[in-house]
Simulated assay, not measured.
Amino acid sequence: MSDPSEPRSVARAVERLRLAESSLSRRRQTDCGPSETARAAMRIVYDSADAGKRVTPTDIASALGISTPTVTTILRRLHDGGLVTFERNPDDGRSKYVAPIDRNADITGLDPITARVRDLARTLDDDTAGEVTRLLDAIADAVDAECR
């Protein structure tokens, strides 16, 4: 193994992570943990809450490019897993908002890899966590920008 402080080793580690995520995604298509679509829906719920915006199932369906009934099924599973709650829209009685219940909830049964990542992240000091966060955010932005 090469020196972990070399930038090339960081790039190799990120590529290994991307391959592992891709492989996990394929395995999860056979009902092994939350699907990629469920994880994407949860990310939309979290990001909306962080931005102080309310999000509806229709908003999530539109953002993901999938049908509202499919989102309803995904949200029902996330709700049953204790990750989201539904709030009545006071302006439209037929509509509801989706909100995260608790970002720090114990999700080991629903998504053990996220629980494991949280445990690993807790081992970092504040400075290192900040550096890793900035790097991973920049990598996520680069991945998101690809093929758009």
Rank of each mutant, 00 (worst) to 15 (best):
L17W: 13
R18H: 12
L19Y: 01
A20Y: 07
A20P: 09
A20R: 07
S23Q: 09
S23C: 03
R26K: 09
R27W: 12
R27K: 15
R28L: 03
D31Y: 14
D31I: 10
D31C: 14
G33V: 03
P34A: 02
P34R: 02
S35D: 11
S35K: 04
E36K: 12
T37P: 08
T37K: 03
T37M: 08
A38I: 12
A38G: 08
A38V: 07
A38R: 12
A41M: 13
A41K: 08
V45N: 01
V45D: 05
S48V: 03
S48R: 04
D50H: 06
D50V: 00
A51E: 09
G52C: 07
G52P: 09
K53M: 13
K53E: 14
K53G: 02
R54Y: 10
R54S: 13
V55C: 04
P57S: 11
P57T: 05
P57L: 09
T58K: 04
T58E: 10
T58F: 01
I60H: 03
A61Y: 03
A61S: 10
S62E: 13
L64D: 03
S67F: 14
T68A: 05
P69V: 02
P69S: 01
T70Y: 00
V71Q: 03
V71E: 03
T72N: 11
T73P: 08
T73F: 08
T73Q: 12
T73A: 12
L75K: 01
L75E: 01
R76M: 04
R76G: 00
R76Q: 06
R76W: 05
R77H: 08
G82Y: 12
L83S: 02
V84A: 01
T85S: 13
T85I: 11
T85Q: 15
T85N: 11
F86C: 04
N89P: 06
N89S: 07
N89D: 15
D92F: 14
G93Q: 15
R94E: 06
R94A: 10
S95L: 15
K96D: 06
V98G: 00
A99M: 15
A99K: 12
A99R: 15
P100W: 14
I101M: 12
I101W: 11
I101E: 09
N104C: 06
N104H: 10
N104M: 10
A105T: 05
I107C: 13
I107W: 08
T108D: 01
T108Y: 06
L110Y: 14
D111N: 10
P112V: 09
I113T: 11
I113C: 10
T114Q: 08
R116A: 11
V117C: 00
R118P: 00
D119Q: 14
L120A: 14
A121Q: 01
R122D: 09
T123A: 15
T123L: 15
L124M: 13
L124S: 01
D125M: 07
D126E: 03
D127F: 04
T128M: 09
T128Q: 13
A129N: 06
A129R: 11
E131F: 07
V132M: 13
R134T: 02
R134M: 05
L135E: 06
L135P: 07
A138Y: 05
I139W: 11
A140V: 00
A140F: 03
D141A: 06
D144W: 11
